[in-house]
Design a protein around this nucleic acid. Structure first.
Length: 488
RNA sequence: GGUCGGAUGGCCGAGUGGCUAGGCAGUGGUCUGCAAAACCAUCUACACCGGUUCGAAUCCGGUUCCGACCUCCA
């Protein structure tokens, strides 16, 4: 019996995953704030938890996967001042804030679709859950962990820490936070500088605003995830995911809010994907060194030598473990592209292998080795390394240097289908989407070329090859006849 | 400054006490009318200094360098 182990940030260890309810997994992942173009950094958590979503389903769980869209709140800085990001963008573009949010939500969806990332079960909007957030604030106040000042409501971290552990997730001590937190300019309404806003009073020029028991305002930084996870997954659920940069303060605050409101930490397992770096430094909006997904897909960014197919991006990310940083470079991406083509070619060849009586290689351990790697905190690079071992076997079988029985060939087909397509979501879209019978047409062309070759009419044979090459179709002459494939 | 993580071959990137990651690139060969692909073989490692051990890239201590979080961030 194999167990699925995942690294839990809460314990700092890999733990055996056991769902709260048998056969059902509830999972919440922090989605983007939709005020800018989706970039490579957004793709990492979306992909990490897409793999988890797919894998859990593979393990036989019914999964309810909630990934939010943040379309309100979030001030530009921590000093309780400045507009909110969406509002500022709306002002700059002279648009309604909801136009900004909708525009970038659509962009986000389009990019994830291209990356073959499955839709979550529920994708709630923060703006659609203001009532739930207000209700949660009321509970926090009633339980004595929130206080109102001048139309804003703050979370009393110091008081909370007396009976709970603020820092349980990020392993921080409140004394250190008191020492190191940035000094705020001007007077703050907060009792302590570690306190955070649950509700902010809207200044007169603030566009995004809602009525509340404390006056017109908008919800605080961290509240929406607590309110929405609770609404759709319950006070206690299985997995909460997001980028590592959200561990503190965002997820720490979420735990505090949930405990303060419901006396329950919320998620049992906290999972965090690492960052994407560019020349060793985090790729991020605030650093201005990010590359948008569209730019990758069409190659339009200065730093890019070429366009990269979404599947190449997907494969590139899967080649690293989700808890490692992964460094972007053109050479790394180009390597990934070639590797992916090699993988796809082998899958195609696999379907053409001629079975023999008996296999000369033992492929039986591979399936469980792949499962073992996946069960070890989703070690996708290791799974890929095994698949590439199999690529070698498939290719050498095609060359006639190895034999595979029909049983083993079918075994391999199942294995590649399971990992490459179902779990890793790598699809060779060019072949899947072709409505015409290209195979049939190609076999006619190749037959004619074969006739020329037999007559040693190299001119015709080469012409066919060159012309097809111009159409992005590559011809390969092998012992068993000629094969063809798309170049990219 | 505080907390945490990292340093692996030309590049990317796994592993974690003894046995090979894998991809890309390089080199030599096989195949081929040529080409491409593929196959076979092969080369370049575990930041530095100590220690533990029969044995360490892997454990322990120290050093250097890098990064993340401590403001919004995926």
């Amino acid at each position: 019996m194999q167990y699925f182990k995942i690294y839990n940030t809460l314990s700092g260890k890999k733990e055996i995953f056991r769902s709260i309810n048998p056969n059902i997994v509830t999972m919440y992942v922090c989605g983007p704030t939709v005020y800018g173009e989706p970039h490579l950094g957004h793709a990492r958590p979306a992909l990490t938890f897409d793999i988890l979503f797919r894998y859990l389903k593979h393990l036989g769980y019914k999964v309810r996967y909630v990934r939010n869209i943040t379309d309100v709140g979030h001030l530009l800085n921590d000093a309780d001042e400045g507009g909110d990001k969406i509002g500022e963008k709306a002002k700059a573009l002279k648009l309604e804030p909801m136009e900004v949010a909708n525009f970038y939500t659509k962009k986000y969806h389009e990019s994830l679709y291209k990356l073959n990332i499955e839709n979550p079960s529920i994708e709630p909007l923060a703006s659609g859950h203001i009532i739930e957030q207000i209700e949660m604030i009321k509970k926090i106040i009633d339980n004595g962990f929130g206080y109102e000042v001048n139309g804003s409501v703050y979370f009393d971290v110091v008081k909370y820490n007396e009976s709970n552990d603020y820092g349980i997730l990020s392993r921080r001590k409140i004394e250190d936070l008191m020492d190191s937190s940035r000094h705020l300019d001007g007077q703050s309404d907060k009792k302590n500088k570690v306190d955070f806003a649950l509700w902010k009073k809207a200044s007169s020029e603030h566009i995004m605003r809602w009525p509340s028991p404390w006056g017109d305002g908008f919800p605080g930084w961290h509240l929406e995830c607590s309110a929405m996870s609770c609404k759709y997954l319950g006070e206690e659920f299985d997995i909460h995911g997001g980028g590592m940069d959200l561990v503190f303060p965002h997820h720490e605050a979420e735990i505090a809010q949930c405990c303060a409101a419901n006396n329950n930490k919320g998620a049992k397992y906290w999972m965090h994907n690492n960052m994407i770096t560019i020349s060793g430094q985090k790729m991020g909006k605030s650093l201005g060194n990010f590359i948008t997904l569209d730019e990758f897909f069409n190659g339009s960014h200065d730093k890019l030598d070429q366009a990269y197919h979404p599947m190449v991006i997907r494969f590139f990310l899967l080649q690293a473990h989700y808890r490692s940083t992964i460094d972007f470079s053109n050479t790394a991406l180009q390597s990934a592209e070639k590797g992916l083509i090699r993988l796809f070619n082998a899958i195609k060849i696999l379907n053409k292998l001629k079975p023999k009586e008996k296999s000369t290689v033992d492929i039986s351990p591979f399936s469980s080795k792949c499962d073992l790697a996946m069960n070890d905190d989703m070690n996708t690079p290791i799974v890929l390394s095994y698949l590439f071992d199999l690529v070698k076997i498939i290719n050498s079988t095609y060359e006639g240097k190895q034999d595979l029985s029909i049983k083993d060939i079918n075994e391999l087909k199942k294995l590649f289908e399971k990992y490459t397509v179902s779990i890793f979501g790598l699809c060779n879209s060019e072949e899947d989407s072709d409505p015409t019978d290209v195979e049939g047409i190609m076999s006619i062309i190749l037959e004619l070329r074969q006739n020329s070759k037999e007559k040693k009419d190299w001119e015709i044979a080469d012409k066919i090859r060159d012309r097809l090459n111009n159409l992005n179709i590559e011809i390969k002459d092998t012992k068993d006849g000629t094969s063809w494939s798309y170049k990219k």
